[in-house]
């Protein structure tokens, strides 16, 4: 039972997804906008890290406050363990967003959208890898869920971050308002169950 860290190489950028996050609902993106996005991608990509800290715990859980524990265990009924994870693309993304938010907000907006797309892509990459590894052991993984969504209280974030030793392992910290720094970070829980043979 140890916190582990895994680094990923950059998953390919899904540009449609970035546009969706940026509030561009149109089908066609005009050239000047797509050029601006390409500029953002070129500037951001070399500065991003893709790190995940994770920890597998057997069920029933001995940690988490009773309320959160009940919600988690309900969500993973029938599972024999849960994988906790925290993922981040690093604080450089925050710096880039802040830099342009003061000088060129359109670029800041696209970088922010790119950051959202990147962190989701990282979570997807981690979960895909997890599914493959678990499959080898005859296990399968449920879809991930996060504090603040559904019934799991946002406050569960505190314990998740502490259990994963996230500040030390991947440089992910929580502030007093339960906001994560770096901003483009995700914490989540995945139920692991035995596949019916």
């Amino acid at each position: 039972m140890a916190m582990m860290v895994r680094s990923f190489s950059a998953p390919p950028v899904d540009r449609r997804e970035v546009w969706r996050y940026a509030g561009h609902r149109g089908a066609d993106v005009e050239e000047r906008l797509s050029l601006l996005l390409e500029e953002c991608i070129a500037e951001a990509m070399p500065r991003l890290q893709y790190r995940v800290a994770y920890l597998e715990l057997p069920l029933p859980l001995t940690c988490f406050a009773p309320e959160a524990r009940a919600v988690i265990e309900e969500r993973v009924t029938g599972c024999h363990s849960v994988m906790l994870f925290a993922a981040t693309v690093g604080v450089e993304m925050d710096r880039l967003i802040a830099r342009y938010s003061r000088t060129q907000p359109s670029k800041s907006l696209l970088l922010d959208a790119l950051g959202s797309e990147r962190i989701e892509a990282l979570c997807d990459a981690f979960c895909a890898e997890l599914a493959v590894e678990k499959d080898r052991e005859g296990l399968a993984a449920l879809p991930r869920f996060s504090p603040g969504y559904g019934k799991l209280p946002l406050a569960a974030q505190r314990e998740l971050i502490a259990l994963l030793d996230a500040p030390r392992k991947i440089g992910l910290a929580l502030n007093e308002s339960l906001l994560m720094s770096p901003a483009k970070s995700v914490t989540a829980i995945v139920g692991i169950y035995k596949e019916n043979v």
């Binding site: 802040a98 500040p167 502030n175 720094s181």
Partner: peptide
């Protein structure tokens, strides 16, 4: 002495 576990301003709140 290890880190506080919080991030300093401006990207954190410490």
């Amino acid at each position: 002495i290890g880190p506080t576990g919080r991030m300093l301003k401006p990207y954190g709140d410490l």
